[in-house]
Design a protein around this nucleic acid. Sequence first.
DNA 1: AGCTATAGCC
DNA 2: GGCTATAGCT
Lengths: 258, 258
Amino acid sequence: MLEGKFDEASLLKKVIDAMKDSVKLCNFNCTENGISVQAIDDSRVLLISLLIEAGSFEDYRCDRNIVLGLEMESLNKIIKNGNASDMLTLVAEDSPDALNLIFEDKRRDRIAEYSLKLMDIDQDFLKIEDMKFDAVVNMPSAEFAKICRDMKTLSESLQIIITKDSVKFNSEGDFGSGSVVIKSFTDLEKTEESVRITLEKPINLTFGAKYLNDIIKSTPLASQVTIKLCDKQPALFEYQLPSGYLRFYLAPKFEDEE
Amino acid sequence: MLEGKFDEASLLKKVIDAMKDSVKLCNFNCTENGISVQAIDDSRVLLISLLIEAGSFEDYRCDRNIVLGLEMESLNKIIKNGNASDMLTLVAEDSPDALNLIFEDKRRDRIAEYSLKLMDIDQDFLKIEDMKFDAVVNMPSAEFAKICRDMKTLSESLQIIITKDSVKFNSEGDFGSGSVVIKSFTDLEKTEESVRITLEKPINLTFGAKYLNDIIKSTPLASQVTIKLCDKQPALFEYQLPSGYLRFYLAPKFEDEE
DNA sequence: AGCTATAGCC
DNA sequence: GGCTATAGCT
């Protein structure tokens, strides 16, 4: 049996918001350590890895491993009904045919209870190898989101060039081009505004703007995003949860398709 | 001659907003006591009863009974033009071919005057019997609206089950089901947040979500809604005006059509 | 009242 | 699939 209680429904709300535009159906794997998802987006380009550790919950127990096959759009409908500040409890039997979601108003006697039918989703469990990266950028997630949105107006590709102490986002379009350069920056009072660049080798990679646009749906989850890159390898975009993460792996475009 | 002056145009604005999606054309009956409407919505399911008593006006006079056949969409266009805080005067001759609407800014000399052509609408005056009800629920109108919207994402039917001190709104859909339970609750400081349940017999009725969605357009009119129910009878949903009301009568679905 | 999210339209 | 119009939320 799974029973996980979030102090605030908003955490799961943001997670689903971040994933629902990339993937329609996916398996949520529940174990004693928490809930995890590995999925490939519907266009088969973006790899998504979610981990909500038990520590993200107010209370959490899961006696046996359970796989919950969820339709993201239906789940989203239900989650939107709950108030963001409601307590949210997820409940599933050991061999469930439904996931129960219980929203409780903290102030008074109002309980909303939903049951979502589960799907049998044929989806291999993806093993994601630990990778080594040549460059790591930590920056404000909202700033990264704005850069991606801005550059997308110019071109379908976004080039990321990292040198010793700066990151350049570059976009070459038909009617013009644009670039944004940000430098390492430490704000001791507002650490969430800082930019940190850790570099072993310079990086020059190009990504599909469309997929970055999906990735930045995660912005409300965390004030910072961590971008890890390595030449000719998928880049990792990571948003930290209070206890866990939401990660996206995106392969760069190769020269002949840029 | 009719001459009715609202201190604020917003009252009529909200009334028209609440009705315009249900009924395209309707007769406004003006008498010395005020203005009233009895209409059936375009799908012939929902009965609408409006009463704006003379007391809702700053000044009101109506020497003879006048019927104003109004096209709601045109009226709405005109009313949207006026500022919500403007004073609004309705003027009509004894045998009018138009309704005049005069908006006056309170602070400065700005007068907007509109004339709306009347329609000859063939519509029987409906006599609505006083009914006896087994259960009466008073609750915040915004909360009722949210429940109706939320449940509508799951199913086309909404079941209302009332027991001694709680109301359960229940919805059974294809991909899942949901319910919201609220209990009697008195907030002495914010009385508009209170929930009051008066019960003679338990209630279990099902309504078409589509019509409830029309009814909740009235939410801005009043902080509370009163729902009166009786087995196998149309339910009454009432929003109080400062002096008068907007009421909707909706027949429950019967078992064979649920 | 302004902003954001959604639903219908092109 | 993107955009525009509408409606809900802060």
